[in-house]
């Protein structure tokens, strides 16, 4: 089973990377772009076949290592 962990900077945490991307987009002439936030996606191949257990496992991994919950939030999707 594959799990996808999306890690994003928490609301209120400065995201200079997102800001820089936003500036670059404006410089390229893409109008109408509001706030830009940059995060990361981590794909995991899990031996677990039960979706409930797989999700719990991926969430535990995110809390322990993949995300720093002081500054980042995460979400898990399975496929």
């Amino acid at each position: 089973m594959r799990a996808k962990v999306t890690v994003m900077p928490k609301a209120g945490v400065l995201d200079p990377q997102g800001k820089a991307i936003g500036h670059a987009l404006a410089g390229l002439g893409f109008a109408g772009v509001g706030e830009v936030r940059a995060g990361k996606v981590i794909e995991l191949e899990l031996a677990e076949t039960d979706p409930v257990k797989a999700r719990a496992e991926a969430e535990a991994m995110a809390r322990r290592l993949l995300a720093n919950t002081v500054i980042e939030s995460f979400s898990v999707t399975l496929d």
Partner: peptide, 11 residues
């Protein structure tokens, strides 16, 4: 220790 160290504000 508490907190975190983010990318420098200037990038």
């Amino acid at each position: 220790l508490p907190g975190a160290l983010l990318r420098n504000a200037s990038l």
